[in-house]
Simulated scan of single mutants.
Amino acid sequence: MALINTTIKPFKATAYKEGKFVDVTDADVKGKWAVFFFYPADFTFVCPTELEDLADIYPTLQKLNVEVYSVSTDTHFSHKAWHDTSPAIGKINYYMLGDQSGQITNNFDVMRPGVGLADRATFLVDPEGVIQFMEITSEGVGRNATELLRKVKAAQYVAANPGEVCPAKWEEGEATLAPSLDLVGKI
């Protein structure tokens, strides 16, 4: 689970995106920020609420040069069927990667042993393919896309402003910190 600051591993998968099946590789991810959004399975309960929440902020993420890749161990065919039948999933315009081989899920170390399903996990990858943050929750705990957006903005700010860090609850435009000897014990 020590994946922070490591480069994503090679992968190849087929995704469902905007009415088409498209191949996606690790090389396609490089050059822009990427969110990998793992979820256990299609046609379930918490998953569609999370994926719909993410679909609602996807246009904002795109404006920040962030691409989204949802990933489950279902096939791209299953993703299409779910997209065509669920009002919540029908809102999705981002990539829905089919990972039936488990390659991507195992690369990110979020495969549930002996189950064949991904954990509920989120990773932010920078344009060089380096993992900048990750979040993993238990089966019944859904994620919040607004908080993900805040973390993306913080990671992008830190990347663009070496020597500065974003404190807890930081929001875009708020004060940051410049760690130094002068700050030790004064926060």
Rank of each mutant, 00 (worst) to 15 (best):
G19L: 06
S70R: 03
S86Y: 14
K12G: 13
Q62M: 01
L124P: 15
V125E: 00
T44Y: 12
R112E: 09
K30M: 05
G90D: 09
E52S: 12
G98Y: 06
P127D: 02
F36N: 05
G102R: 11
Q100F: 13
E18S: 15
A13V: 00
E139Y: 15
T7K: 15
T7I: 05
K17R: 10
N5D: 08
V29K: 10
A41L: 14
E50Y: 07
L97C: 10
S86G: 12
E52G: 10
M96V: 02
P59R: 13
T122A: 06
V130C: 08
V24S: 09
K63N: 10
I136C: 03
W33V: 00
G114I: 06
I57R: 13
G129I: 00
V22T: 08
D99T: 07
H83A: 07
T85H: 14
F43Q: 12
E18A: 14
F77H: 14
V22I: 12
A55V: 00
P87S: 15
G90A: 08
I92A: 04
H79L: 01
Y58F: 14
N93A: 07
A2L: 08
V29W: 05
F36H: 02
E128F: 01
D23V: 05
A15V: 02
T105L: 07
T137Q: 10
Y94C: 02
K17E: 12
F11T: 01
G116H: 09
I131S: 13
F36W: 02
Q103R: 04
G129E: 06
T85F: 11
P10L: 12
N5W: 14
N5G: 07
P40C: 03
M111S: 12
K12W: 05
L51D: 00
D28K: 14
S70I: 06
V71A: 13
M96L: 15
F11N: 06
